[in-house]
Design a protein around this nucleic acid. Structure first.
Lengths: 207, 207
DNA sequence: GCATATACGGCACGACCGTTCGCTTTCGGG
DNA sequence: CCCGAAAGCGAACGGTCGTGCCGTATATGC
């Protein structure tokens, strides 16, 4: 039997994972070591390792939490906006804000993990891919709704629009993280808003 | 005295660095180890380490070579195009082609290095930042020329345009590397071309 | 109150890391 | 012709990695 209640265990696990995500956002998911994380949590290596079984499972759990936090901070506040273009704008707004003041020290965790594992086959790469695909699907569905409601040019391809928004966000994150210049955020925001401008002008989302 | 001619030493060093860049594009600049690189080159660890002095200097040298290769493949072929919008379009064309068939297995090395080191102070981060800044400056100058020549809307901010092009390239690289879907390349290209469309329509590069 | 399941610490293992120290081999200059 | 500079090798260093094993403390169900 567990020596503490299940909820306490869960809370402890969440705290551990939050620290793991914060650390990994700086040194990468591979650079995240059991030892350094244990030291941060004032635990022994073996105690920490026992919780997750292996480093890979720790990586997967950290990835899951990061995705959940991202959704909480970026999508959830925007979900109250009316579906379609307005919600997309709200998402972009929250997204840029998230990039400017990320929950973790090393910038967007998902971007870091994506770049780190994009050429390394394995469960972590698969999980990153699935997470990204799921998020892009959300954007895509929202874009399709916007087109259906006539808020965007009729020829707009929702998938292309979702791709471009995401690409701008990723690029903005990289630039801001590297140079720490807030003008990157303003420029990323402008580019997104231009992309989502109403009216008949066909923008970058065609075909 | 060197036991071989200086040019032979340089050629050998270049070959070594090319392999280092290829390896690092997959596992990252930090994941690049002396041992694995030595094995690849059929050398001893100590022999390889002696050439560069330290791992950090190897990282810096690899970064330099990668930047040079990027310029050779992306900028140089486009330099023959007339300065301004036409050259920018040529750069984007070569850039997308480069992303689709990178010289190295792990995709754009500069993006990988940038994301990997953007939160880790030190000489490598500084070098990445300088390299990126230099490249963005090239784009910016070209954009300024295009605006001056009236090939782009008058209000266009060259720095913002350069930022957006770069962001699209970085985002396209991430998406393509992760999903290995060529449609990412087409979408990135479309977004860039829409950004560089002539005519008076103010696009994402305003302010 | 006791037995038991379980989380955690201490410890050690083998592997690999970057780096260093001789040693050999090999060439170019006096 | 020989001597010295230098490159590269093998081996070893201390350190850290992920991962098991085992003892122990502890909280809960009986």
């Amino acid at each position: 039997m567990p020596r503490r209640s299940a909820s306490a265990v869960d809370a402890d696990r969440a705290r551990t994972l939050r620290e793991a995500v914060d650390l990994a956002s700086v040194v990468g998911l591979e650079g995240l070591t059991i030892g350094s994380l244990a030291e941060r949590l004032q635990m022994s290596k073996s105690g920490l390792a026992g919780r997750f079984g292996s480093k890979e499972q720790l990586q997967l759990a950290a990835l899951d939490l990061a995705a959940e936090m991202f959704a909480n901070v970026v999508y959830d506040p925007a979900a109250s906006a009316p579906a379609g273009r307005r919600r997309l704008l709200a998402i972009c707004d929250r997204w840029i804000a998230f990039l400017g003041e990320p929950c973790f020290r090393g910038g967007c965790f998902l971007t870091t993990a994506s770049v780190e594992f994009d050429a390394r086959p394995g469960p972590v790469r698969d999980a990153v891919r699935a997470t990204m695909r799921r998020w892009l699907r959300v954007l895509e569905d929202e874009a399709a709704t916007a087109v259906r409601q006539g808020e965007l040019p009729a020829g707009t391809d929702p998938a292309a629009l979702a791709f471009t928004i995401n690409a701008l966000a990723v690029g903005t994150n990289c630039d801001f993280q590297l140079h720490r210049d807030a003008s990157a955020l303003a420029r990323g925001r402008s580019a997104m808003e231009a992309l989502l401008a109403p009216g008949p002008a066909p923008l970058a989302a065609a075909a």
